[in-house]
Simulated assay, not measured.
Amino acid sequence: MTSAEQRYEAELKQSDIDHHTPTAGAMTGHIIANLLIHSLKISQAKLFAKGVAALFLEGYGDQWVVHEQQVFKELNTLLVSNGESIPTTIDQFKEFTMLEESGADKYQPGNEQLFNLIKDFDTQTLFITKAIALAQKEDWQPLAVKLSGLLAWINAQIAIAQHFLGHDLREGLYNEEDDDF
Rank of each mutant, 00 (worst) to 15 (best):
L35S: 10
L35Y: 02
L35P: 02
L36Q: 11
L36H: 08
I37E: 12
S39C: 08
S39V: 06
L40K: 04
L40T: 05
L40H: 10
L40W: 08
K41A: 12
I42N: 01
I42L: 09
S43M: 11
S43I: 04
Q44F: 05
A45Q: 10
F48Y: 15
K50Y: 01
K50E: 14
K50C: 02
G51E: 07
V52P: 10
A53E: 11
A53N: 11
A54Y: 01
L55F: 13
L55T: 11
L55H: 12
L55P: 01
F56W: 15
F56I: 01
L57N: 04
L57I: 14
E58T: 11
G59F: 10
Y60A: 06
G61V: 09
D62I: 15
D62E: 13
W64F: 14
V65T: 11
V65S: 05
V65E: 10
V66Q: 14
H67W: 02
H67Q: 15
Q69V: 07
Q70T: 14
Q70R: 12
Q70C: 03
Q70F: 05
V71Y: 03
V71A: 06
F72T: 05
K73G: 06
L75D: 04
L75M: 05
N76F: 00
N76L: 03
T77K: 11
T77E: 14
N82R: 09
G83Y: 07
E84M: 12
S85D: 10
I86Q: 01
I86H: 00
P87M: 03
P87W: 02
T89Y: 03
T89K: 08
I90V: 15
I90K: 14
D91G: 10
Q92D: 14
K94D: 14
E95N: 10
T97P: 00
L99M: 06
E100P: 04
G103T: 09
A104T: 09
D105Y: 13
D105I: 05
Y107D: 15
Y107L: 11
Q108V: 02
Q108A: 11
Q108T: 02
P109W: 04
P109K: 13
N111F: 07
N111C: 04
N111V: 03
N111L: 03
F115W: 07
F115K: 10
N116V: 11
N116W: 12
L117N: 02
I118V: 15
I118Y: 01
I118E: 01
I118W: 00
K119R: 13
D120T: 02
F121C: 08
T123G: 03
T123D: 13
T123W: 04
Q124Y: 01
T125E: 14
T125C: 09
L126R: 10
L126W: 03
T129L: 06
K130G: 09
A131K: 05
A131Y: 03
I132P: 02
I132F: 02
L134Y: 00
L134C: 08
L134G: 00
L134I: 05
Q136A: 06
Q136C: 06
K137N: 13
E138H: 09
E138D: 09
